[in-house]
Amino acid sequence: MKNRKALFGFKDLKVEVEGKEVVKGVSLEIAPGEIHAIMGPNGSGKSSLSNALMGHPGYEITSGEAYLSGENLLDMEADERSRAGLFLAFQYPLAIPGVTVANFLRAALKSHRGPDADMTDFRRLLKAEMKSLSIDESFATRYLNDGFSGGEKKRVEILQMSVLNPQVALLDETDSGLDIDALKTVADGINRYHSENNGILLVTHYQRLLNYVKPDYVHVMIGGRLVKSGGPELALKLEESGYDWVAEEVGQKAGV
């Protein structure tokens, strides 16, 4: 099944949450350097797909395949997927009281580099990335997401991505709850991270992030299925006309 050129992909993936099928067989491939966007209305299964790909124990993958750099992701636990190079920026990042941003990120980076790795560059790295994302230095010693505003949480998700520098980043509704300045800062962070060698999958309801982070491909997800794919122009059309026309088009094709 594998297109050897693809960095990351999944095929015929089905996901159940508490016995209910929420993703009903989806396939996608991302080649190095590509940015893909999955757009869809609320409840279409976008977040379930991201959580399942990252290995959330509450999202059961009942069939299909998923791989990263030729490795089977479905054999791995969440931590192994992370260390293999997958990252998920959460829609609603949780607070971890008592654990500072710096200590958490140091532990995370160390888990990627290995127990004997040299971590002397960590402070400098963290400081530089925080500066780029306009995150005040005091956040390094604040407890992770504890009392952070929505925008601060999203920026700290992107900070984590920048520090861990994954091969593939799944960004789940990273634009939601951001004002325009924060949106630009976050978009800058994503663009800075992006390179010829990595891939990005943006999961979003709205088009506005796509004004700043240009996708190569846009896919529409409705009712647990990827029903339409196209270029960036598809996102603009969705922004103008909503999702109903896609649903109708798909419905007609399917003869419903």
Binding site: M54, G55, H56, P57, E77, A78, D79, R81, S82, R83, F87, L88, F90, P93, L94, I96, P97, G98, V99, N103, F104, A107, A108, L109, S111, H112, Y143, Q160, L164
Partner: peptide
């Protein structure tokens, strides 16, 4: 959910649990 958040960043489940406990004791 907390465990998943931390393990999704590469920490093993044991390390993640320890971090949460240390945070609780902080």
């Amino acid at each position: 959910e907390q465990l998943f958040y931390l393990t999704s960043r590469g920490l093993t489940e044991d390390d993640a649990r320890l971090l949460i406990v240390n945070g609780f004791m902080e």
